[in-house]
């Protein structure tokens, strides 16, 4: 088996690659023959096997093993294959980058063909995408001063600036919201507001300076930064932990349902 998977060059490589694609097309065609009512079992089987590998690798007793690649590690009989499987899954996952691009392209090409006010913006979207892909890839494959400078203009000049600015706009909205919407209308809102104000005062230099005049050792607990730390490390941490327990147990239960194919709904039940 191992002798089959040896690197090839030139024509031998071409034949093998074409062979792989032909085999895959044949396999997919055979899969397509699966009756609709049984397709969900195929999906469930794939899901179960993928999960079983990682679950077994975790639960199986460990010993000292040597992997096929460099280095030794503690693990079980499944551990040495971990890197190859991870590599393969990473590559397959990386191909999903096209899904988002296709979705965006579909939306913007519709707008572009429709014309009107939004067509120009969609054109800008396509040109910007193209420019960044070309410059980004060329910078790596053909590193020279031109690609490096263009990359600097597009990345440092435009992309990072636009990204940072887009998120910073929220600061303006939050100020307006604090003034207009943050009102003491119930006990819960009052606790929330007081906590927020204390945390805010405790996290700024001027706020901390306001209570710095309190020198008595017993009253130092009233320093804004001390109260803030108490809220964050005690009251907040305890509440977050309680929420986290719920999420952790819930996450495990959902994972088990998915893994064992017990989850109902459009995902497994859809027959395509």
């Amino acid at each position: 088996m191992a002798s089959l998977f040896v690197p090839a060059k030139g024509g031998a490589w071409d034949i093998r690659v074409v062979g792989v694609f032909a085999l895959c097309v044949l396999l997919f065609a055979l899969l397509q023959l699966t009756p609709k009512q049984y397709r969900k079992y195929v999906i469930q089987f794939v899901t179960l096997i993928a999960g079983l590998y990682y679950a077994l690798e975790f639960f199986w007793p460990i010993s000292h093993v040597t992997g096929p690649t460099k280095g030794e590690a503690e693990g079980n009989f499944l551990t040495p294959s971990m890197e190859q499987i991870s590599d393969w899954l990473t590559i397959i996952a990386a191909f999903t980058v096209g899904l988002g691009v296709i979705n965006l392209s579909m939306v913007h090409s519709k707008r572009l063909t429709k014309g009107g006010n939004t067509a120009f913006n969609s054109l800008v979207f396509f040109l910007a995408t193209l420019a960044m892909v070309v410059v980004g890839v060329l910078k790596k494959s053909h590193p020279n001063s031109l690609t490096s400078n263009l990359y600097q203009i597009l990345f440092d000049g435009a992309l990072t600036t636009l990204d940072a600015t887009m998120f910073s706009i929220i600061a303006f909205y939050i100020v307006s919201a604090s003034y207009r919407a943050f009102r003491v209308r119930s006990t819960e809102a009052t606790i929330l507001l007081i906590t927020a104000v204390v945390v805010m005062l405790g996290q700024i230099a001027v706020g901390q300076a306001l209570t710095r005049g309190i020198h008595s050792s017993t009253l130092q607990v009233l320093h804004f930064e001390v109260v803030r730390d108490w809220i964050l490390t005690l009251a907040n941490a305890a509440a977050v932990r309680a929420i986290g327990f719920g999420l952790g147990i819930g996450g495990l239960a959902v994972a088990l349902r998915i893994w064992l194919g017990l989850e109902r709904g459009s995902y497994f039940d859809g027959q395509g």
Partner: peptide
């Protein structure tokens, strides 16, 4: 991370 933990170089 699962692979890195076992072998940094090949991952």
């Amino acid at each position: 991370f699962k692979a890195l933990a076992n072998n940094i170089v090949s991952t």
